[in-house]
Amino acid sequence: MHESAAQIFISALLANNFVLAMFLGLCPFLGVSARLDTAFPMGVATTFVMLVASLCAFGLNLLLSSLHLEFLRLISYIVIIASAVQLVEMVLKKRSPTLFRALGIFLPLITTNCAVLGVALFQTAREYDFLQSLAFSLGGGAGFTLALVLMASVRERLQLSDVPGIAQGTAMTLVLAGILSLGFMGFAGIGS
């Protein structure tokens, strides 16, 4: 079975949304989604890291496979991701110190965002070619941003409503995420 790049993109964006269907990248999803003006840049930064990580992982996988060093795959992927995050951090610090402060601890934590490592691991497991990997990482990143922005919009509205005491905080966010995920199940079948 050979999927086209467009199919992979749509599938990663909607039907198999990284956050809401595959449970990748939940920590920033729960942590940074309180406000819209930090959620969107966070999504874009993560997408960029995903893109870099995916392309590097693709090249690296070719190299490691030709040398029969597959067992080093995981370690090399994580080192690449950490370097990419460092790069994003330096650029952001220089271009937009305000945003850099707003994202705070969650910026270096992109390294431990499973969505980023997930992209690299899944594309290896599914044996995507270069174009497919590109579409997969872009779709995954866009899907992550979409989920983050949707969640942030809902949570901003939520501040105006009267939530019962015990449901405040993480519990409410999780129930909301469940409802969003329920909605995204409606996309099942698209892109496959």
Binding site: L20, A21, M22, F23, A171, M172, L174, V175, A177, G178, I179, S181, L182, M185
Partner: peptide, 10 residues
């Protein structure tokens, strides 16, 4: 299914 995970933990 995925939503169930969110609901149960919530």
């Amino acid at each position: 299914l995925p939503p169930g995970g969110f609901f149960v933990l919530g």
